[in-house]
Structures are given as structure tokens and as C-alpha cells.
């Protein structure tokens, strides 16, 4: 199986350790991982901020880069959701029939739409790839810490990853998983929302942080570094003494590598 790592622009630039952890983990599970260096960005920031044309340009580039692989793995629920959930909508918006809101299924017949239909079903969030494609729920990890998990909106409601990440964490040796109250509520990141509506974003994060604190966890885990950058940045500002870690980084730890 040819597995391509879609690192995402944010991880590539700011959180390379997450990418390294994915590589370590997938290799440990017997995958051959490729990193197509021509990749840049899925276009989410542009599309979601209202720069549709720029976003579509980046989407076309994404499809070119990742076209030939059996599976594309992204350590970001949000970017995976952008590709799998939003690309088809973008395609429908540009399609010749312009089915729009009256049709139950978006129809698009443009070459872009065809490429979207071909490539995007093979794009997975890390937990989906591990559980659904590799069929693994125990990745042999060891992480002796008290951890709480924030499911992040786009993993939960976009990709509908369900309890896959939690199942993976439950099988990590030494890890004590504490449920996060009101876990399904948004942390307030929302891309440019965090800057455009900084006040509301901060208010939402205040509640998220309060919930994290009630768990007594040492580590807040999520499968999206954007949300973690927001919550972690707030935790750090408050000197809360809780650190944030991407799911991949926990799953990559083993007793041998401790």
C-alpha cells in the first residue's frame, strides 16, 4: 500500500514533531510512508475566510500531488475534513448542473469534480487510518500519564470519527484517560475566527480550559494542532500547568523509546 503523509501546512511549519511521530508510528505498524514534497496546503483557511478562488487553486494543487496514492493520512481532523467534506461542495458549486441546495447529493461533472470524487475518499484522519484501514486499535504505545481528550469539531461532526481516538488512547499502556466534561463543545479556534472574533473565541476557550482543569489531567490530547495551539496558548498564558499533545505523539511513544 502506498501511503502518503499529508502533513498540513500548520504542522509542517510549527509542529514538525507531530509529523515525525506519525512517521515513527506508521513505520512501526509496517507501513511504507511517503512524503510528497510538492504538497503545501489544503486551502481551508482561504475557503473558510471567504477567498474561494485562492482556496480552489490550492485544492487543485492538493489533488495533483496526492492523486496516485492508495491512502493519504493527515494528522489533522480539520484538514482531512476540508478535503473529504468540503472539496465535494466546492466542486458542486462549480459544477455544470449547479444542483445547489435542492439536490440531496451534490452533482458536479467538471474535471475538478471527477478528481475530487476519485481522490478524496482515500483521505483519512490518523485515527481513521489506524482503526479502519490498518485495523489496529492497540498500537503498542506506552504513556504513563493522566490524559484528557478533546474530540475537536471537524473530527467529530465533519469526519464523524466517533470513538476511534478514544479507543486508541484506552489501549495505551500506563495511560489514565479522564473524560472531558462538555467535550463536544467547540474550543473557539475556528481559524480566522480566533482573530476576527477574538473576544468570543477567548470566552469559548475560557470554558474549555475550565473543563480541562476539572479533569486534573496533566496532558490535554487532541487530533488537531490548530485547536491545541489555541487551547494550549491559553493554558500557557494562564500558567495552568497542563501541556497539550497531539494524538500521534502519544501513540508514537513506546516503553523502549521512553
Amino acid at each position: 500500500m502506498r501511503v502518503a503523509l499529508f502533513i498540513t501546512c500548520v504542522n509542517d511549519t510549527l509542529f514538525p514533531d507531530t509529523g515525525k511521530a506519525v512517521v515513527t508510528l506508521l513505520r512501526r505498524l509496517g507501513c511504507e510512508v511517503e512524503f510528497p514534497t510538492a504538497q503545501t496546503c489544503c486551502g481551508q483557511m482561504h475557503v473558510n475566510t471567504g477567498y474561494r478562488d485562492e482556496g480552489v487553486r490550492l485544492a487543485r494543487h492538493f489533488l495533483d500531488v496526492f492523486g496516485g496514492y492508495d491512502a493519504v493520512v493527515a494528522p489533522s481532523g480539520s484538514c482531512a475534513a476540508m478535503v473529504r467534506e468540503q472539496y465535494p461542495k466546492l466542486a458542486a458549486g462549480m459544477g455544470a448542473t449547479r444542483a445547489g441546495a435542492f439536490a440531496s447529493v451534490h452533482q458536479g461533472r467538471s474535471p475538478f469534480a471527477q478528481e475530487v470524487a476519485e481522490v478524496t475518499p482515500k483521505v483519512y484522519d490518523l485515527s481513521e487510518f489506524l482503526v479502519d484501514v490498518l485495523g489496529v486499535t492497540d498500537v503498542g504505545a506506552y504513556f504513563p500519564h493522566r490524559v484528557t481528550y478533546h474530540p475537536t469539531c471537524h473530527s467529530l461532526r465533519g469526519l464523524k470519527v466517533g470513538d476511534r481516538p478514544v479507543t486508541l488512547l484506552r489501549n495505551v499502556r500506563g495511560l489514565e484517560l479522564v473524560p472531558l466534561p462538555a467535550a463536544d463543545e467547540c474550543c473557539g479556534f475556528g481559524g480566522t475566527f480566533a482573530v476576527k472574533n477574538a473576544g468570543v473565541s477567548a470566552a469559548m476557550c475560557a470554558d474549555k480550559v475550565a473543563n480541562v482543569m476539572t479533569t486534573g489531567a496533566e496532558v490535554l490530547c487532541a487530533a488537531d494542532n490548530s485547536c491545541l495551539m489555541h487551547i494550549g496558548g491559553t493554558l500557557s498564558r494562564q500558567r495552568a500547568g497542563v501541556r497539550v499533545m497531539h494524538l500521534a505523539e502519544i501513540l508514537a511513544r513506546t516503553e523502549a523509546a521512553r
Binding site: 448542473t97 449547479r98 444542483a99 445547489g100 435542492f102 439536490a103 440531496s104
Partner: peptide
């Protein structure tokens, strides 16, 4: 406004 839009069953 709705010219050409598909019908729903």
C-alpha cells in the same frame, strides 16, 4: 429563481 433546479422526490 428556481428555473432549472432539479426536482425532489
Amino acid at each position: 429563481a428556481v428555473a432549472g433546479a432539479p426536482q425532489t422526490d
